[in-house]
Design a protein around this nucleic acid. Structure first.
Lengths: 169, 169
DNA sequence: GACAGGTAGTTCGAATTCGAAGGAGTTATT
DNA sequence: AATAACTCCTTCGAATTCGAACTACCTGTC
């Protein structure tokens, strides 16, 4: 009764699906206030800065970022525009590929990221990390990464449906 | 290098955070096409119908739904409007509380849900369920539910910050 | 080296989202 | 029973999101 229930027609093993969605929505919602407060950042903007901050010396393309965030390209353009206008990132044409754009963290962007991270870490710890002991947390991480590998290895988004499927029009 | 990397200033145990967000975004993105194709539903709309379908005899309030979806109330109003206009749900004033609204699945809504579910189950299975063997899947579910309990038991969204925090203006 | 087909980003319009403000009903306090 | 404080839901405007159409560039094939 306190279980995250599941529609009757979905088999029991789909509990993992609903649990996953709800946890991630709550986590995401939980950190939004902190990011807004401490850095004036939306969650997506924070993610962009965080990815760029992983390795500040190597710029990322728009597509890289969009794929990492699982975000539409146009949506990413919008957010990078916004960050660029705020002076937090820099867009430069790629030298290798004239179509491409290299996005980099500006010093100011790095500063904002550094300013936001401590509070963010605290918030995430509160909401997620502290929910589990070390062993369970590592187990959860391991399982999630395995799922990630599985999903990344799937055909990229077309050419499914073998010809043994047939339903109505 | 293939690990979902983490910004340098976040401790290692935050890997679980990034993995969680990416998995759930990918899963969500992965099912959207199927829902649109088979039932003309957005993901949120599907979630609403699915929750209503859990126990079609007991209606849900708008607030119930919003909390379950981790969605703003106004956003929920918008989507329920939409579903009502399409004839998939019914809104009725609550008898117990004159302010409240009872949302129920209409027969048509139930039909759409039934129509969408098989394909949806297949998609979720593809993307998520099949990524793990039974034991690992149950373990993942257990861990996620534990996190859920942890988060739900936290103070509901106000009254944090003891008076030892002070930063600038 | 031209052409077809693919990839990288952006722009555009439509749909969706949120938070703030408001209307209406309920609950607690006196 | 009057009032204040609260809850439920909606309306509103602004911000964000997406997909489709578009431009520009790159790659392979002849």
């Amino acid at each position: 009764m306190t279980d995250p229930t599941v529609p009757p027609s979905l088999p029991r093993e789909f509990g993992v699906y609903f649990a996953l969605l709800e946890v991630s929505a709550l986590v995401q919602h939980g950190v939004e206030g902190q990011l807004r407060r401490d850095g004036g950042l939306s969650f997506v903007q924070f993610q962009i800065l965080a990815i760029l901050g992983e390795d500040p010396s190597s710029p990322r393309s728009m597509t890289d970022l969009a794929d990492r965030l699982v975000h539409s390209r146009s949506g990413l353009t919008y957010q990078v525009d916004r960050l660029e206008r705020a002076g937090l990132v820099v867009r430069a044409p790629s030298e290798a590929d004239e179509r491409g754009v290299n996005v980099t963290l500006s010093p100011k962007g790095a500063a904002v990221l550094e300013r936001v991270l401590p509070g963010h870490a605290e918030e995430v710890r509160d909401v997620l990390v502290d929910a589990l002991d070390t062993g369970d947390r590592e187990e959860l991480t391991r399982l999630l990464r395995r799922v990630l590998r599985h999903m990344r290895s799937r055909p990229p988004r077309s050419a499914r449906r073998s010809p043994a499927d047939g339903v109505e029009a």
